[in-house]
Design a protein around this nucleic acid. Structure first.
Lengths: 195, 195
DNA sequence: CTGTCAATTGACACGATGTCAAGTAAATTG
DNA sequence: CAATTTACTTGACATCGTGTCAATTGACAG
């Protein structure tokens, strides 16, 4: 409860985030995190039950640091549906590289750890809400293309904006971040905006 | 070299495939595979160097079983670019659920095992060739929309048809296989075919 | 001075992969 | 038929990472 306690807890989270960012989420062990936080491996467990809990806490900590909610909600203030769609694609798209390391680690853990899966799924459902809101805004403007239902359009946009897709396009295909954002906007217009 | 040897090797692969299919690639241990193949855990290593090698062999074995190459190449015989695009989306789309289990396991291993990564990457590059060929066919028919370059269109189609996206749309969004195929075709038409 | 709290150290269990040596049983070969 | 080879078995053991436990230390607070 003391501020020392808080400080150690945060030092652990910061250590985890540093390591996950530089290693792209791969091969970061509890002992590595402890070493970087300047404490013993066992002491980490005084603050976090297990690896999954630590990773989950790290993503929440990162959200606060980067003020992600504010950034994503900002897109909701756009006046037209199209502006709103663009703003959301940009806000989320610029956010992905900042969470990529932790996200990768959390996704990898999701395969084996129930809690990690739930935590990641929760975030992705929140992200889906943003997609649904953007599609809904288009619909209200009577600008939603009849090609797909609102429901299907949301599913497609949600999938299109996944972290895995960002990874593939930027890491494997060699797109720059700017190309990624521009292409996703163009793609969404082509698919969802009435001609 | 004897047919007994071959038979055991194949029994191991078949056991692995059976288990991976029913468990969706999660939590299949060497001992599980051995048990199902009816041999001791250690004996598996007489046939396959390690888990990664076994998984890689299993995907190749599955390809042969399902005659995947023939099915994917068949799309190349379509006369128009659009037919070719549709045929490829359908052939690959129908193939995904058949390899899903092994694919999931191989993708999970790719995080830690270099050889597994190389094997999976190799398959994905081959899949990308198919996408590139379909886009190229559209281009030759002068039916490729000017929205994206051939290169970018290939990247987008390749990403759109990823196993992860299939997984998200069918498992998380609850799409049926038929809905998935239909939507992917519609999506590709909207994005890549000249209006 | 005494208790509490954060952290340390060393030891250890577990699960999974992978290795090694010795042994067996059946088929193959001289 | 006897010797050898082949495929496999068994049991033991190393390694790595996670997670736990008990005993100890050092600081700080009442």
């Amino acid at each position: 409860m003391s501020s020392d306690n808080l400080s150690t807890k945060n030092r652990i989270l910061q250590a985890a985030l540093d390591l996950l960012e530089t290693s792209h989420g791969k091969g970061v062990r509890m002992s590595d995190i402890a070493k970087r936080a300047g404490i013993s491996r066992q002491a980490v467990y005084l603050h976090y039950e297990n690896r999954a809990a630590l990773l989950i806490a790290a993503t929440k900590y990162l959200d606060d640091l980067k003020d992600s909610n504010a950034r994503l909600l900002a897109s909701r203030t756009a006046s037209t549906g199209m502006q709103r769609l663009d703003a959301y694609i940009e806000a989320w798209g610029e956010y992905i590289p900042e969470i990529y390391g932790v996200a990768k680690a959390l996704m990898a853990m999701s395969d084996t750890d129930e809690a990690a899966y739930a935590a990641w799924d929760d975030r992705m459902q929140a992200m889906r809400e943003g997609c649904a809101a953007a599609i809904e805004a288009l619909h209200r403007d009577n600008m939603l293309s009849p090609t797909f239902s609102s429901e299907h359009a949301t599913d497609i946009l949600w999938t299109q904006l996944s972290v895995r897709n960002w990874e593939q396009l930027t890491q494997q295909c060699g797109w720059t971040q700017a190309q990624y954002i521009a292409a996703q906007k163009k793609l969404a217009h082509t698919c969802f905006v009435k001609a």
